[in-house]
Nucleic acid binder design. Structure first.
Length: 581
DNA sequence: GCCGTTTTCGGCCCGACTGTTTTCAGTCG
């Protein structure tokens, strides 16, 4: 059993104990352990077999035993028993905003409610308000929460879908007869939120059956929706639909292009094909009106790759991230597509957390991980004191960390740790530190972490005020999950970007794998304003440094180039930019 | 359930916000 699944089980145990009313610190121990396991570097199986898992801080005797059982047997008796004592559906209820373990427990005890559907009915029949501790308002809020849940239940964060997809892709690619296997669809286009997973395989027809049945019997498959000659559809354990198609190797580029989409992009390039008297579909090009059947050896244009397809239409190659019919086809025709930022362009980053606040690794460990990636610098921006839930730093601990950074920097030749802070923007728009303290940092990231329910107008005012502080270098993650929850929020973000552009601030493309990135349309808007961007991982763990790739994905969709991204600058250039000596 | 240690058990991250209360509990970040 892999790290991610072990973490899921531990987290689930924590939640079930929460509902059971167990000691909160015991529950927290499980939730903590889930986070710790996720953040562990290296191979979990090796840690278990050597017994070193017991030496990890936060993993005591009991947890070490349970993790060992999970890793070695793939099961955990304690978990199975615990889970069996709850009706299925309780987890779904916890997903409703404002419903936590205590409310779930009350609902189960007082009204025998164990599913979201039952809960919704009870709200509509006005039965909730009568329960002690609940009221009219709570009932309304829960109903609203259920609506929201329904609306987004078919959407998955990119990182969640990617994890599931890569597990399956790895297995499929290793099967006999598989010549190529790729992820297609919105996941390949690196949409922040995707509805399903599409996987495409190139193989001879004789192998198709075996490939499809191996797919349908993969351990993460919860339910098989259909399994035919060339295609199988399943639902994975995380609830997402996953389709696998097997196509002939000669058709693969066409199928990959077709199933990558977007639909609007496909419509545009098919109309280009028609203008050239060609018909383009998922099997290939054919002369218009020829009536040729697929599989004909007389294809109008043979293509060995997607590059060939675009070239045949007189287009330069359009990277998947750009295929949204957002001007990319015209740009490809005119040969004016931007040279997009690549992961390998990144020379460093600006928003990493350490064990000083809520990170999982020390200053030294983070620096070494960054150096191992070939970077020249690493910006540490731990939380400030108002973020108490994240163990935010007060002025004393800031000084301590800065001292440590100085000492580590002396040992790292050709590499520099930059002293940053992720300072909270308080409810009134003030910053969590005085100007005197802010002045001690190399740069300052200002972020909102509280009061999300304030009106959009007030939130905008609050952020604008913070941006007027001369020590603020960068706007922290503007949106997070708010983008999902509040339609129209982006409008106010434009106001913020306008103001930030005027004062020369940097936009952060925050790439925390658990959150939505800054919307790429905003990136394009900000780019038009001439703003500089920073692709930041908000990394709490060493492995998390790599998550900068999520930010790169969003940057590419915003048509951002190397020159737009501060992280692609060399250390010397960054030092100059930040006016460091 | 974990940690640290004044080595055997007490403390464990905390404040804002909301809705329910009339002094607080639950949820969230």
């Amino acid at each position: 059993m892999d790290k991610a699944r072990v973490a899921d089980v531990l987290d689930e145990i924590g939640t079930l104990l929460d509902i059971q009313g167990e000691n909160v610190f015991k529950c927290r121990a499980y939730h903590n352990a889930a986070r710790i396991v996720t953040g562990l570097g290296g191979d979990l199986a090796a840690l278990v077999s050597s017994g070193d898992i017991r030496n990890v801080k936060g993993i005591g005797e009991a947890l070490a035993e349970k993790i060992t059982e999970l890793v070695t047997t793939g099961k955990l008796a304690y978990y199975d028993e615990l889970k069996a004592s709850f009706p299925p559906g309780v987890f779904e209820m916890m997903k409703i905003q404002g419903v936590g373990p205590k409310k779930v427990r009350l609902l189960m005890e007082k009204l025998s409610i164990t599913t979201v559907a039952q809960l919704e009915l009870a709200c509509r029949e006005d039965r909730l308000a009568a329960v002690e501790g609940f009221g009219k308002k709570t009932q309304e809020n829960i109903l609203a929460g259920i609506e929201l849940l329904k609306k987004h239940s078919s959407q998955f964060l990119y990182s969640v879908a990617e994890r599931a997809a890569l597990t399956i892709l790895g297995r499929i690619a290793a099967l006999p007869g598989v010549i190529r296997a790729e992820i297609a669809g919105s996941l390949r286009r690196k949409k922040e939120v995707v509805g399903d997973i599409d996987i495409l395989v190139a193989a001879k027809k004789t192998h198709a059956k075996k490939i499809l049945s191996a797919f349908a019997s993969h351990e993460s498959v919860q339910r098989v929706l259909g399994e035919g000659e060339t295609k199988a559809s399943v639902v994975l354990d995380i609830g997402i639909n996953c389709d696998l198609r097997v196509v002939d190797p000669s058709e693969f580029p066409f199928a990959l292009n077709y199933f990558t989409g977007s639909k609007d992009h496909n419509v545009r390039i098919r109309s280009l094909a028609r203008a050239a008297d060609l018909s383009l579909n998922e099997y290939g090009f054919s002369p218009l009106g020829s009536g040729e059947k697929r599989g004909s050896s007389k294809r109008a244009v043979a293509c060995a790759s997607e590059e060939d397809i675009y070239a045949a239409l007189g287009l330069s190659y359009v990277p998947p991230e750009l295929r949204e019919d957002a001007g990319e086809v015209d740009a490809a025709l005119a040969r004016t597509l931007p040279v997009l930022v690549e992961e390998r362009d990144i020379r460093g980053t600006f928003h990493c957390h350490t064990t000083y606040s809520d990170g999982a690794n020390t200053v030294t460990e983070m620096a070494e991980a960054a150096r191992a990636l070939g970077w020249e610098y690493l910006g540490l921006a731990d939380h400030s004191k108002a973020a108490a839930y994240a163990n935010g730093l007060d002025e004393t601990r800031v000084r301590k960390q800065q001292k440590e950074i100085d000492s580590v920097n002396q040992k790292l030749a050709g590499f520099r740790i930059l002293k940053g802070i992720e300072v909270d923007i308080l409810a009134n728009g003030d910053l969590d530190f005085s100007d005197a303290t802010l002045a001690t940092f190399d740069y300052v990231v200002a972020s909102v972490h509280s009061g999300f329910k304030m009106s959009e107008a007030d939130m905008t005012k609050r952020i604008l005020k913070a941006l007027r502080n001369k020590y603020v270098t960068m706007i922290g993650h503007l949106t997070g999950r708010l983008l999902l929850i509040r339609e129209g929020y982006a409008l106010r973000q434009h106001e913020i970007i306008d103001a930030a552009a005027d004062s020369g601030k940097i936009i952060e493309i925050n790439a925390h794998p658990q959150r939505l990135d800054l919307d790429w349309r905003l990136c394009r808007y900000a780019k038009e304003k001439g703003m500089k961007f920073a692709i930041n991982p908000d990394a709490h763990v060493t492995d998390g440094l790599l998550d900068v790739r999520y930010g790169v994905g969003t940057a590419r969709k915003g048509w951002l180039e190397k020159k737009d991204i501060l992280n692609t600058s060399t250390l010397r250039e960054v030092e100059t930019y930040l006016s460091l000596t």
